[in-house]
Design a protein around this nucleic acid. Structure first.
Lengths: 110, 110
DNA sequence: TTGCATACATAGAGGAGCAATGCATTGTTG
DNA sequence: CAACAATGCATTGCTCCTCTATGTATGCAA
């Protein structure tokens, strides 16, 4: 299982990235992340919803209730302008850290 | 400045990567990270030493006191076998998360 | 009607980060 | 030679956050 600090650090970027493809809702997001990570990321609903609420509080995403075909109520989340901006920042930061790490990897002699 | 969750998540891999090039000591590590990140990673000594101690407690690195040319005492850290293993794991995890993120990036239409 | 998948939500214990602070030495500048 | 900057290691404790455990509710299939 992937280390929890890494899971924590990637949570917001992953969610924002997912929503950048179009709106989605909690349960579906969890499934998607599980699939994408080959079940290596131990996400539970108890971990996801607080993040969604936080992102909404920060104004990066917004939600609307909607009824699915099957009659269930779902809370759909979608990206706001600030969310797009935040996502770009995330991308930049990840690229930087990734560059630092892979730069070092090449220099290793162990 | 880079988000602190990301800084936290990258701390151990970065330190281990640095030490994989050869032994080093606290102060030098901080300088190196600052340089590598283009001063975007706000590391202080108060943040580094606990991580070093933790890594040592986990048996991934080891330390020895030594006198530098200038007469100062330095605590040099170097990688142990477990540290090398941990580093490989870190690499794998980062690759996975990075793949998930960049995979998503390509699918975005926002 | 039992059980499973779907679906959202929060309380609170536990843990981790890091700012602040402390100590000591060397080199440098005025 | 006094004062300051840079070097160098270390810990305390407040605060913030995570994530486990738990709760609620519905649709559907066996």
């Amino acid at each position: 299982m992937i280390r929890k600090e890494l899971v924590a650090a990637s949570a917001e970027p992953l969610i924002l990235s997912l929503l950048a493809r179009g709106e989605s809702y909690g349960y579906a997001i969890i499934q998607e992340i599980k699939t994408r990570s080959g079940n290596r990321m131990g996400w539970t609903d108890g971990m996801l919803y607080p993040v969604l609420h936080r992102l909404e509080r920060k104004g990066q995403i917004k939600s609307r209730w909607a009824e699915a075909e099957n009659g269930r109520k779902r809370k759909y989340y979608f990206l706001k302008k600030d969310g797009k901006k935040a996502l770009e920042e995330h991308d930049e930061h990840w690229a930087m850290v990734h560059a630092a790490l892979s730069g070092l990897r090449k220099e290793r002699y162990v």
